[in-house]
Design a protein around this nucleic acid. Sequence first.
DNA 1: TCGCACACGTTATAGCATAACGCAATTGAT
DNA 2: ATCAATTGCGTTATGCTATAACGTGTGCGA
Lengths: 131, 131
Amino acid sequence: MGTPQLTKNQSLVMGALAHSDGPLSAYTILDKLRDQGFRAPLQVYRALDKLLEYGLVHRLESLNAFVACTCPHEHEHDHGVTAFTICEGCGQVTEFHDEAIEQRLSALVRAQSFKTEKTTIEIRGHCKSCA
Amino acid sequence: MGTPQLTKNQSLVMGALAHSDGPLSAYTILDKLRDQGFRAPLQVYRALDKLLEYGLVHRLESLNAFVACTCPHEHEHDHGVTAFTICEGCGQVTEFHDEAIEQRLSALVRAQSFKTEKTTIEIRGHCKSCA
DNA sequence: TCGCACACGTTATAGCATAACGCAATTGAT
DNA sequence: ATCAATTGCGTTATGCTATAACGTGTGCGA
């Protein structure tokens, strides 16, 4: 079961995120898509829910915003934990993955007999250019 | 420079969090403190800002809520990265720290020439009892 | 063709957070 | 002692984020 064909609304939201150079809030997406007929937040949130489910989009919890996934070739295999650096200066977000962290977290959590459903790792700071 | 004496409002908010068995939203805290004279969200948010600054409280980004720090003895030395497991069933939050993860993250971030200001690690799932 | 699942549209509402104003108390330098 | 700067506080208003609840239409398998 891969990624199904996107609906019109899902494609529009995906396009807005893919063409943005940084994260977008749901309401910012709404504003960008008003010319395409969007009128209400739910149109955005419903599309985002599906895109998140398909793994095409990530939610940045510390920003209440969304970014397109930057691993376009890996949408099939669940590529485990995703981490982000988020620059407070320019807003740039960089996605990365690391096996070692994933395994270490997995071990710590297992020691609590805790069953992980979703892991959030977000690092706020300043990128090279904005230091 | 340790933790200064808390003001009345800060103490009340700290007390509400310390006596709660789980995370509280700012508005929930407000409601709990109405009998003590709280009337507006800002009274809570301003106290929380200070408590966060002093390291007595943590913000859970994925929940928009706050918890008392469970490392009461370590408020002086910055104890680095804090991570949480958050049970979707019972709401229980467990705070933990791990040197290995901290160092691995530090190395990955340094490779990007990124300067970390704050790191968020939150693991949503189900605890042993709620599995 | 009936029933079901799903996407969609709309209105209304709930929940989270801050802006902007003014006042009072404290501190510390001159 | 006094003035200026800082900090905490209270209040009103506002803005941003997210979901509830209702109804419509469409496609598709039993």
